[in-house]
């Protein structure tokens, strides 16, 4: 067995270049309801970019230099915008019943990202090294201890920093890439047919071809 050949075959059938970089889209993808996924991705990109700058220069820089404070502010506000986008994204996906047509895995994958970002957000709050970080480490400890998560020492700055910039960031990146791969491979979910009544609307309703009974 040639592994490369198998992978080539898999990629060709699952995610060929035409899906990675699409030059056409179904005509029904023509609505503000499709904006929030891109908005989520764009704001996440700003989160990663501003976070990378912070990682290079460290806490003293981001707290006590004007440029550092600005990048720190960018990181904070990009997270706020990211969550606004992600909440809108999943709300619109819900109202599109976007899990139809075997897209449940994409729906679950999206929720996995959301859950990881919550932990990433908490670790980020603790890294702020300010009053809120201090207070949240107190409050958070009670909750994390209660859940049996005390083995993750949220008061060790190195542990939290590594979890934030490596572990959670890596997981988010991995699941975002998976999410996009699913989305591109599956194609956008079809509009709901006949109000979802009278037939099983699996989100992949077949168009009527020439000669089909109309």
């Amino acid at each position: 067995m040639n592994i490369d050949k198998v992978l080539q075959k898999g990629l060709k059938s699952f995610l060929p270049l035409k899906d990675d970089l699409p030059t056409e889209m179904p005509a029904y993808v023509n609505s503000f309801g499709y904006f929030f996924g891109t908005m989520t991705l764009a704001s996440l990109a700003v989160v990663f970019m501003s976070g990378t700058v912070l990682a290079f220069f460290g806490p003293d820089w981001w707290h006590f230099s004007s440029v550092g404070q600005f990048f720190n502010a960018m990181h904070f506000w990009s997270v706020e915008v990211f969550y606004l986008a992600v909440i809108m994204h999943l709300t619109f996906k819900f109202f599109k019943a976007a899990w139809r047509g075997n897209r449940f895995r994409t729906w679950v994958n999206g929720w996995i990202i959301f859950i990881i970002t919550i932990f990433s957000g908490i670790s980020g709050t603790l890294l702020q090294a300010n009053w809120d970080a201090q207070w949240n480490s107190q409050q958070g400890k009670a909750a994390f201890n209660a859940l049996g998560l005390s083995w993750m020492n949220w008061m060790n700055y190195t542990t939290v920093l590594t979890l934030h910039v490596v572990f959670f960031a890596g997981l988010i990146l991995f699941f975002v890439v998976t999410h996009l791969a699913f989305v591109r491979s599956e194609s956008p979910v079809h509009p709901i047919v006949n109000g979802g009544k009278g037939e099983i609307d699996d989100g992949n309703a077949r168009a009527l071809g020439e000669g089909d009974e109309k």
Binding site: M25, V29, N30, G101, S185, H190, R206
Partner: peptide, 18 residues
Amino acid sequence: MSVLSDKNLRGYPMKPYD
């Protein structure tokens, strides 16, 4: 197109996209 896209989008009008 992927096997899934090809199946799902058969018969649906397309529009140019970048």
